[in-house]
Write a protein that binds this DNA or RNA. Structure first.
Length: 299
DNA sequence: CCGCGTCAAGTTCAT
DNA sequence: ATGAACTTGACGCGG
C-alpha cells in the first residue's frame, strides 16, 4: 500500500502557524503562540483524516524559538494535555507525523557551537514528538550536513556526533540524501555506521545521483532494509523540479504525469511518500484524483 | 490599514 | 561578492 502526505502547511485552512521576532519574544508571548499553534494542529489533522491523508509533517516552528535560550517556557508541561490529546488522535486515526529540522541543523560542522545548537534543535524536535506521546515510527528527518572540503572526514564527524546523541533522539532519527553533498549511497553508508533508517529522496537523487546502475525501485529496496519494525513503514520523499527555476528548486505543484510514471514502478510496495511542493495538500488531492480515475480502489 | 523589508541559526553553488 | 536554494511565510514597521 502506498500512502501520500504533505509538509507543514494546509493552504486552504486559514490557520497560519504563528511566530514572532526575537526582539519581541517573551515567555508569555512564546507560550501564547505555542498554544495557538498546537491548537491549530487539530483542525489540520481532522481535515487530513477526513480526506484519507495519513501522512503529515509538523512544522519546526510549532513552538517559537523552540531551541533558543530565550525560550524558557516549559511548554511540554504547560501544553501537556493538548499535546497528549493530539497524540491520541494521531494514534487512533492511524496517522503518521514527522518533523524535519531546518538547514541550521548540522551535526557534522567543524564548529562546536554549530553542532551544539544542532543537538539542541534535535532535542526540541524530540520533545515535541515525545509530548505527543506518539511512538518511534514518528520520525525526525535530517541531512548529513556539509562537506567542508573533505567528505570522508566530514562523514566520519557526522557518525561520531550521531553516536553521542541520546537514545530518545536516535530512536526517532532518520537520514536523507541531499541534492548537493551526500548521495543516497553516502547516506546508506552512514546508516550502516549508526543504525538509523534512510529516507530516500527521489528528487535529490536526480540532482545528486549514485548507484546509477540501479533503478530507483531497487535503491528504495536498499533504503527499505535500513528500516526495522519499530521504525514503522518505509518512507521516501518525492518532488519535481520547478520548471525554469534554479536546479534543485521544488515545483509549485506535483507533476501528475511524472508521478504516475514513478508510481507504476513502485505501486506494489509498502511506502509512505512525503511530497515536497509549494501547494501542499492540493498536490496530494490531485494525485488521489488521478489514481482513482485510473483504478477506482487506489490509494 | 496595507505594503513590503526583514527575520535565530549554516553551507553550497550559480551568477 | 551576492543571492538563492534548502521542509514552511509571517511579522511588524512605516507610511
Amino acid at each position: 500500500m502506498i500512502r501520500i502526505g504533505y509538509a507543514c502547511i494546509n493552504t486552504k485552512l486559514d490557520a497560519p502557524n504563528r511566530t514572532c521576532r526575537l526582539k519581541n519574544a517573551t515567555p508569555e508571548k512564546i507560550l501564547e503562540l505555542a498554544a495557538a499553534n498546537v491548537e491549530a494542529l487539530q483542525p489540520i489533522l481532522d481535515w487530513n483524516a477526513a480526506q484519507g491523508i495519513e501522512l503529515f509533517r509538523i512544522t519546526s516552528d510549532l513552538i517559537p524559538f523552540g531551541s533558543h535560550p530565550i525560550n524558557t517556557v516549559p511548554w511540554w508541561r504547560i501544553l501537556e494535555s493538548q499535546l497528549a490529546r493530539l497524540g491520541d488522535f494521531i494514534a487512533r486515526k492511524g496517522l503518521r507525523v514527522s518533523m524535519h529540522p531546518g538547514q541550521f541543523t548540522i551535526l557534522n560542522s567543524p564548529r562546536r557551537e554549530v553542532v551544539a545548537n544542532s543537538v539542541k534543535e534535535l532535542e526540541y524536535h524530540t520533545a515535541v514528538l515525545d509530548a505527543l506521546g506518539v511512538d518511534n515510527s514518528h520520525k525526525i528527518v535530517i541531512h548529513l550536513g556539509g562537506v567542508y572540503g573533505d567528505k570522508a572526514e566530514s562523514l566520519s564527524r557526522f557518525v561520531e556526533n550521531c553516536k553521542r546523541l541520546n537514545s530518545r533522539i536516535r530512536a526517532r532519527l532518520v537520514i536523507e540524501n541531499d541534492e548537493r553533498c551526500y548521495t543516497v549511497d553516502d547516506v546508506l553508508g552512514a546508516s550502516r555506521a549508526i543504525g538509523v533508517p534512510v529516507v530516500f529522496d527521489v528528487f535529490h537523487h536526480v540532482w545528486n545521483p549514485a548507484l546509477e546502475a540501479l533503478p530507483v525501485r531497487l535503491i528504495i529496496g536498499l533504503a527499505a532494509k535500513t528500516w526495522r519494525k519499530r521504525d514503522g513503514r518505509v518512507k521516501i520523499h518525492y518532488s519535481n523540479q520547478w520548471p525554469g527555476g534554479p536546479a534543485g528548486a521544488h515545483s509549485k505543484s506535483i507533476n501528475v504525469g511524472k508521478f504516475l510514471r514513478f508510481y507504476d514502478t513502485i505501486h506494489d510496495l509498502d511506502l509512505d511518500i512525503m511530497l515536497e511542493v509549494k501547494d501542499k495538500e492540493q498536490s496530494v488531492l490531485k494525485l488521489f484524483r488521478a489514481l482513482n480515475a485510473r483504478q477506482p480502489r487506489a490509494a
